[in-house]
């Protein structure tokens, strides 16, 4: 995982920036497009987890 290359301070700063700032202002989304070979079943599992 690339995050392992970051220092703990970098990670902490990014985490604070990313999550504490928006509070409830979140929309769940991938960081980029999902792979085209993703199975429907995998997608449905995600929907179940978030209660959609």
């Amino acid at each position: 995982m690339n995050f392992r290359k970051l220092s703990p301070d970098d990670l902490r700063n990014q985490w604070h920036t990313a999550v504490e700032q928006p509070g409830k202002r979140l929309i769940l989304a991938p960081g980029c497009s999902i792979p085209n070979d993703t199975a429907d079943l995998e997608m449905q599992r995600l929907l179940k987890v978030i209660g959609a």
């Binding site: 995982m1 690339n2 995050f3 392992r4 970051l6 703990p8 990670l11 902490r12 990014q14 985490w15 990313a18 999550v19 929309i27 769940l28 989304a29 991938p30 960081g31 980029c32 999902i34 995998e42 997608m43 599992r45 995600l46 987890v49 978030i50």
Partner: peptide, 29 residues
């Protein structure tokens, strides 16, 4: 809005903060 990959940038800190590590869909699956 800004969209970026929180797991790549912050998942280690999420864990240390005691939260669910992430909802990055790949990892949920």
């Amino acid at each position: 809005a800004i969209n970026y990959s929180a797991i790549r940038l912050a998942s280690a800190s999420l864990k240390s903060a005691g939260n669910t590590p992430n909802c990055f869909w790949r990892d949920l699956m």
